[in-house]
Every structure is written in C-alpha cells, then in structure tokens.
Nucleic acid binder design. Sequence first.
DNA 1: AGACAGCCGGAATGTGTCTA
DNA 2: TAGACACATTCCGGCTGTCT
Length: 429
Amino acid sequence: MEMNDGVAERDSEKRKEVMRSDSKEGLEPGANYRAYPKPLAKYEDVVADPELFKDTLMKLHAEMGTKFMVPIIGGKGLDLHRLFVEVTSRGGIEKVIAERRWREVTAAFSFPSTATNASFVLRKYYLSLLQHYEQIYLFGSQGWNLPNVPSNTSLTTSVSSQKLVEPVKSHPEAQAALHKRRRNSGSSPTYPPVVGVIDGKFEHGYFVTVTVGSEKLKGVLYHISDQAPWPLVCADESNLRSPRQRRCRKKLSMLDPNHPKPNRSGYNFFFAEQHARLKPLHPGRDREISRIIGVRWNGLTETEKAVYQERGLKDKERYKNEMAVYNERVKAGQHTNLSPIQQLPVQPMMAGQTDTKSEKVDNDVNVTDEDCFSSDDSDSDGESSHDDSEMGRSLDRSAIESTCLAETLKEEDRFELRRREDEKLGNGA
DNA sequence: AGACAGCCGGAATGTGTCTA
DNA sequence: TAGACACATTCCGGCTGTCT
C-alpha cells in the first residue's frame, strides 16, 4: 500500500482531530442519529492486514444490517481492501472525488478495457460498501445521521458527519445529476436562508456559526485540500498564475457589479468590431478570425489606428473617472455588492468540497460563497471565454434563483448598457 | 494578468439499453 | 440484477492576436 502520501496522512490526522473535537460538541444525537459500532482495529492495522480488513468490514456490515458482497467487475472479484487503501491513502472518498482522482484509483486496478465505466462502478461500490467503514476507521467518526434529514438544516454536525446525512447528494456528480433532474423537472425545493459567520480560523478550515432560518448552529468547515484553504480569498495575487487562479481574480472583480469595467485598448475596440464583421464570413473559425484581425491591425495606417486608439483613450478616461467615484464610495463605506466574507451566505458544505463545481448545484435557493466567489468551476463565473451563451446556460442551470447572482447580473446588464452608450457616444464623436 | 470572442477537443461523468 | 457497453452531457483549458 502507498501510505507514502505524507500530506494525505497528515490530512487524515487533522480530519480525525476535527472529527473528535467535533463529535464532542457538534454532533448532537437527534432522532436520526445512529452511533457507529466501535472500531475493532486501528486504521494502520486494517491497511496492513487484508484479512483483518475483510473481517472487520464484514462485521461492520453485519452490525449495521447492511448488505455485504464482493462485487464483480470485469469478471473478477473486486479487491475491496485495495480499493479502501487506494482511496484512503488519498485522503478519503470525498477528497478523491473533489480532486478528481478516481482515475488514479481506477488505474491501480488494471481493469480490462471492456470495463469502460469502471471508475463509476468503483465509486458506487465504495459508497455502498466502504463509506461507513472509512468514517469509522479512517476518521474515527462515532456516529452519523440517517438520510431524510433536510441536509441544509444539519450544519450543526461536523462537516464530515454532515456529508453522511445525504452521502450520495453530497458528491459532485450526484449533485450534478440531482440538479439535472431538477432542471428537467423544472421544480426546486425551497430552503430557509443560510447565513454563516466565521468565528475563527485554523490551519485547515474555519469555525463557523450558521444561522439557518431561526436556528443558530455552530460547526466546522474543514478544508481538506492541499491548496489554499479558502480558494475564494485569493489574498496573495502574486500567486495567481494558473488560468484557474486567474479566473479567481477575474471573479473577484466581477463580484462587485459597481466596480467599473476595466478600460479597453484601441485594439480591443478594433477586435470587437472586426470580429463582428468576420464572424458571419468565417463561421466556426474563431482562431483564424483572431489571426486575421491581428494581421489587419498591423496593416492599419497610423491614422486609421488613431481612430481606435482615441476610443481606447476615451475608455481609459472613463475608467479613471468611474474608478475615482467608485473608490470614493468605497471609502465612504457605501455599498458595493462585495460583502464582507463573514456575512456571506454560507451553504452547508462538506469537507474538501470548496473546489467542486457542483456544490452550488445543491443549492437552488440560497447563494453559496461559491456562487459569488468561486475561483473555479462554476460556469457562472462569467469567464470571458464563456460569455453570454455560457452565462445564459449557467443561469438556466443553477443560479437563476440565486439572489446574489441575479442582482449581480442586473447590475452587470445596467453597466453593460452604460458601457455601450459610452461606446456609441465614442463612435458618434 | 486580464481584456475582447467563442468554438474545439479531451476528460469526466451520467444515462439508457442489452445480455447473461 | 449486475455487468457491459454506447452514447449523451458537462466542464474546462486552449487557442488566436495585441494592448494596458
């Protein structure tokens, strides 16, 4: 087995710590609370001894009254011990899913090429056969809540235990599927508003107080990723290198619809104009269009360029003025839509899920921090490359009911109109 | 690094159907 | 009913160029 993943090991230890401390005060036994059987061995022991693993796993299923069998994949019995080791050595099922490492896990089994959906099947079996086992032996969890409890009312439980409330729904794909179904059905459940306040921070997460409707709950948001614990913060912009991180930065600038749109250069205006002209002539050949525009730009005389550069200068001036007004507003403490992080609506989320594309999917009403701040994923991020059509799709998909995003869009629309008017004025002049 | 545009293709995942 | 398979869907980075 490869427990050479020191980071994963440390993560496990930290998760255990959180679970332990949390289980003392956070996971309050309720009507749906079920205590786990005591572990019969240490995690290290079951990892080292496949027989002990099998024995303890069967006993667990017997005690919990759940069905246990060795699944057949690709004509062979699935090595559950290996599956358990592969997954837990990567930090557990949640982390594997969140970090999209199922492929790695699947690769460890050398399934025949005919088993095309092996990773999907592996995950299915892990969830049904090993998830509780993982909770007990890896995380030291002492209990869990039965499904049917509205998941959004259970942030009082630890993050890890909360994910057990509706384990299937907690996973990105399942959430995506869920959302898909919701989209198809055209209906969505309504949840009470959830507002979270960060009480404190520790190395791998935050202590939070969450108000769910009229209920005040305390809990832990645990980030198990090796990356920055709060991807939306992007505090250190010097580290913003990858496109994903760049998008975080853009996202932040997009957050506040009152933030002036950065000025565009003369070339930007030229590009937009030429693109609109060339698009019908070269459908589906955008890269070529870009290249042509570049050639054309270089072929312009200084006088011709000056026309666009003048527009660029005007836009620069516009940006300068708007920024001055904006900065004054910020100084005066007037509203920008950029809420202090402590006041952000917080979606109950599971450990390691801060970077998954689907968590907001699970939230049809409330706005998650992801909706507004995600550095990643979420096609609603308004990435330049997925502009209008993508935005429309994403709205349709997930955020149409999101107050924050809807407001943001309204503001953006207004601003866009303003921008276009400016442009017209620029053209007229 | 991000602004402008938006399609392409790979990867991951979901879903439906067929077979033993 | 589980497994295998094919197809559909979704996501996201990359690509083009130049400028600020």
